[in-house]
Design a protein around this nucleic acid. Structure first.
Length: 898
RNA sequence: GGGCGGAUAGCUCAGUUGGGAGAGCGCUGCCCUUACAAGGCAGAGGUCACAGGUUCGAUCCCUGUUCCGCCUACCA
């Protein structure tokens, strides 16, 4: 007799098995392999990051898929890694330096980058370690980092080819500038947030006549850089004034009043100040009218030389001063409350500055066209489908992508400027001589690339591209990408664009977009709100399996997860339930010679046949749900099966055979128990990797791994991670058994209801007399042991011509009446009330059905099977009520007697 | 401004071709029945947001309304 602990203790078990899996290389996709490939690349977390709920959900779902496919016999590769997170990582190390009183400029570029690498070596592995605690079955031997030599080569290759194809250009444009990070940002890296601001009305006087034009602005300080005022050409108010000259207050610069279609007549005064160097629209207007641009701010967000008296002031301080000065001059006419959507840096939350600057850009539209096509033609499926709309919408309006960053940590742009002739040399390797003039006086571009530029190559760069490696040939295109919608544009769209361009094929066939994990009240988790739940804490407290199962069970498509700790606790109970079921089975295995239940069908009991049939159903259900990424449905199906069908019904029913059955039926039942729990563990393993391995190792199993070497020799699997995933063959469908079992269960339910309603002590065995047609009676008689055991009944009498005994309560089921004699405690009044309640319930049902069935149109137009079903239901209901009425009559007569 | 999603039991949510409204947790009653009290059995609880429409029939499809949430946008 085997013994395991009385309850499940995750900690030691998790560590033990994870190490075992690693030592045996189960997560390593072997090359070459004759197994079909299946590949997922992980969305690389920031190397600075630590595991949050989003990662936990994301990784859990990927692990479920990859473990499932691995067990299905695929050469499953889950390729892990991290990205270098340029701005974030640089910020972290800069903060560290600040504590030592140094800044990066003092240190110098080379030494600084050295420091970042040191930091990365020391702390960068944290999230990888945390992923392991989640049970993630990544191929760690293939872990990649976006700054790896190989990936860097891919980045340079892509940059050069895009440049050569005219899809990368450099120029002066308005970009988003973060004055704190001191770098340009792409449009996506700016988060818009509504801020309660003000709209200021400022008067710009004419130079040559009385009067003025009043402009409305939310940013008065930028007036220092104004080079025009614009109105709409159709605006009657300004007709005849266009072309006149205005005097810019304070600086007294003369600027023209121009007309441009971009100006909205309705807004403000219909006149807009034009600041080409500090506003994207104004930049456009200026380029149409050949207006000069004046930068009145420095990269630090302070006022520049050109800001005259305000030079050196912070941009917000300057605003206050300008308003004061304008007011003093009587030129600030009024202020209105106004809500502005202000851009903030997604890394440091500083308000970004639209800023004229020389940057590198990717011309996106030619790339986007093919990326749109790939999704439209369903060569890439986005699941759930509703995200396709967002994807198309964004892609159709895509703008050029600013890819240069003025930081040091990242892929330095492979462009060298000739110090003699000014030629730009873009090259895969450092050029010796300028290709324009032959000079060797070359200086590399200081800027590095946006981190997303390298992540966009992830699905192929990690597999070895630009080399045509075996991995690339085998695993590309990858099968599915699992990610959150928050990086649909940042990352997914760009991967598709790059893949279509460089691989001429999709990067993945499916994109599964999962939910956001929120707190219990539905708020987004954030550090500033203090409502962040640490996944590691959940794992420590409840175990990885319970935690993973919680996330999975709530991962319904298209809906966010409201996470609360209570749920994890609830699923910990489930883990414990499984543990104890296995414990019970192991305790009773004894010296039984376990067989496959299919080998001795003649000895199988009804319950044995039933659970094997149910097992078959849950297996196909789970496989179906996983195919469709309905993780929550899969989890629910297993939960329902293991807890309610297997534990609540089957184990209880198997007990008589185990304790008191003859040798053959005992062997059959124990074999069925073992088979069911063993198969269930394999079925559950992708969801709960640890407890299933631990139990599976205790359970006697004869499970074989699929043939995997070329000789085709099957091996006994030494781990559940490489055992075969259950298929239809592991269950034995038996509709006859399910039908018969249904009758037995109904009988037990009937008796239990009566017991429950009348509060009969469970320890008290009761008699039961069952009136039912002969056919059903036969089934019940054959299986009477179950009724005795589960309904705590004895001396059960079954027959067709039973007369209701005196002083008995009644349970009426379709085709069945159950009488329970309660000598001494029987109270007719209580029983009458109970039956009345039941009749009332049925009356509602009968009224509904009668209405439906007396409707000619329903009978004529509804499908036959629906009508038939309703009729059957009606017959059953009527029959039940008639029986109940008859019993009532008797009870009332009896009441009169007493 | 445009778009998307949601509104179902006290709470959190399922509900896939329109045909008897479900689960988990919570609640109530009984029970420490030799796997599990982290358990078992029984039970209460819902005009499926609102108003129309299509249909024999609508939680489900269509239209509109209200209230939440999210994404997106060059009204300064």
């Amino acid at each position: 007799m085997k013994q395991i602990d009385k309850s499940y203790n995750p900690e030691a078990i998790e560590e033990k098995w994870y190490n075992f899996w690693l030592e045996n290389g189960y997560f390593h996709a072997e090359m070459p392999s004759n197994k079909p490939p299946f590949c997922i690349v992980i969305p690389p977390p920031n190397v600075t990051g630590s595991l949050h709920m989003g990662h936990a959900l994301n990784s859990t779902l990927q692990d479920i898929l990859i473990r499932w496919k691995r067990m299905m016999g695929y050469n499953a590769l889950w390729l892990p890694g991290t990205d270098h997170a340029g701005i974030a990582t640089q910020n972290v190390v800069e903060r560290q330096l600040a504590k030592e009183g140094i800044d990066r400029h003092k240190l110098g570029r080379t030494a600084f980058i050295q420091r970042v690498w040191e930091w990365k070596e020391q702390y960068g592995g944290r999230i990888i370690h945390q992923l392991k605690r989640l049970g993630s079955s990544c191929d760690w031997q293939r872990e990649r980092f976006t700054l790896d030599e190989g990936l860097s080569r891919a980045v340079r290759e892509v940059f050069v080819r895009l440049y050569e194809d005219g899809l990368i250009y450099r120029g002066d444009y308005i970009i988003n500038w973060c004055p704190r990070c001191q770098t340009a940002l792409s449009d996506l890296e700016v988060e818009r947030e509504d801020i309660e601001g003000r709209l200021y009305f400022i008067s710009y006087p004419f130079t040559d006549s009385e009067g003025s034009v009043v402009v409305a602005t939310t940013r008065p300080e930028t007036m220092l850089g104004d080079t025009a005022v614009a109105v709409n050409p159709k605006d009657k108010r300004y007709m005849g004034l266009i072309g006149k000259t205005l005097r810019l207050p304070i600086l007294s610069r003369e600027i023209p009043l121009i007309s441009d279609d971009a100006v909205d007549i309705e807004f403000g005064t219909g006149a807009v100040k034009v600041t080409p160097a500090h506003d994207a629209n104004d930049f456009e207007i200026a380029s149409r009218h050949n207006l000069p641009s004046i930068k009145i701010m420095t990269e630090e967000g302070r006022m520049s030389e050109d800001a005259g008296p305000y030079k050196g002031q912070d941009r917000f301080e300057c605003r206050k001063n300008i308003l004061k000065d304008l007011d003093g001059l009587g030129l600030l006419l009024k202020e209105e409350r106004y809500t502005i959507g202000l851009g903030h840096c997604y890394r440091c939350k500083t308000i970004v500055e639209p800023y004229l600057s020389k940057q590198w850009f990717v011309r996106t539209w030619p790339l986007a066209e093919k990326a749109i096509e790939a999704v439209r033609e369903k060569r890439i499926r986005i699941i759930p489908e509703m995200w396709e709309n967002s994807y198309f919408d964004w892609m159709h309006r895509i703008k050029d992508w600013c890819i240069s960053r003025q930081i040091w940590w990242g892929h330095r742009i492979p462009a060298w400027y000739c110090q003699d002739c000014g030629e730009v040399n873009v090259s895969r390797d450092e050029p010796k001589r300028c290709r324009g003039c032959g000079s060797s006086c070359l200086k590399q571009e200081d800027d590095v690339l946006d981190t997303w530029f390298s992540s966009a190559l992830w699905p192929f760069s990690t597999l070895g591209w630009p080399d045509n490696t075996e991995e690339l040939k085998t695993f590309y295109p990858t099968d599915v990408l699992v990610t959150g919608f928050d990086i649909l544009f940042f990352w997914v769209a760009r991967m598709i664009m790059m893949a279509m361009k460089f691989m001429d094929d999709v990067p993945f066939r499916d994109v599964y977009i999962h939910a956001l994990v929120r707190d219990a009240t539905g708020q987004k988790m954030s550090k500033s709100k203090g409502n962040v739940v640490d996944p590691l804490l959940m794992i420590d407290k409840y175990g990885t399996d319970a935690f993973r199962f919680t996330l999975t069970a709530f991962a319904a498509q298209g809906r966010d997860i409201k996470f609360s700790e209570e749920r994890v606790d609830g699923y910990r109970h489930f883990v414990n339930k499984i543990w104890n079921a296995a414990r019970f089975i192991l305790m009773n295995t004894g010296d039984i010679d376990i067989r496959h239940p299919g080998e001795e069908r003649q000895y199988l009991s009804l319950a044995d046949r039933w659970i094997l049939s149910r097992l078959g159903h849950v297996i196909s259900e789970v496989n179906t749900t996983l195919k469709q990424y309905r993780f929550n449905d899969g989890a629910a199906a297993i939960y329902q099966f293991i807890w309610h069908e297997f534990c609540d019904w089957y184990i209880e029913m198997a007990k008589p055979a185990i304790y008191g059955g003859d040798k053959n039926s005992r062997t059959a039942s124990v074999s069925t128990l073992i088979h069911t729990i063993e198969t269930s563990m394999r079925l559950l393993h992708p969801f709960m990797p640890f407890v299933t391995e631990e139990l599976w190792q205790h359970i006697p199993h004869r499970h074989i791994k699929r043939p995997q070497d070329s000789s085709g020799t099957p091996h006994k699997a030494e781990s559940i991670t490489i055992a075969a995933y259950p298929t239809g063959e592991d269950g034995i469908e038996d509709l006859d058994a399910e039908e018969q079992m249904g009758k037995v269960m109904k009988t037990i339910d009937g008796i239990r209801s009566v017991r429950g309603e009348l509060n009969i002590l469970p320890s008290l065995e009761i008699k039961a007399i069952i009136k039912t047609p002969e056919e059903t009676g036969k089934i019940l008689k054959r299986n009477i042991v179950y009724i005795e055991k589960l309904a705590k009944a004895k001396e059960i009498v079954i027959g067709n011509d039973i007369i209701k005994p005196r002083n008995s309560v009644t349970a009426v089921e379709p085709g069945m009446e159950i009488f329970i004699p309660l000598e001494g405690v029987f109270d007719p009044q209580v029983e009458i009330k109970r039956i009345e309640k039941e009749i009332k319930k049925m009356d509602v049902e009968i009224t509904r059905l009668r209405g439906k069935l007396s409707n000619e149109e329903f009978l004529g137009k509804a499908p036959k099977d629906v009508v038939e079903k309703e009729k059957e239901r009606y017959r059953e209901s009527i029959e039940k009520v008639e029986r109940l009425m008859a019993i009532m009559e008797k009870l009332k007569m009896m009441g009169e007697e007493t």
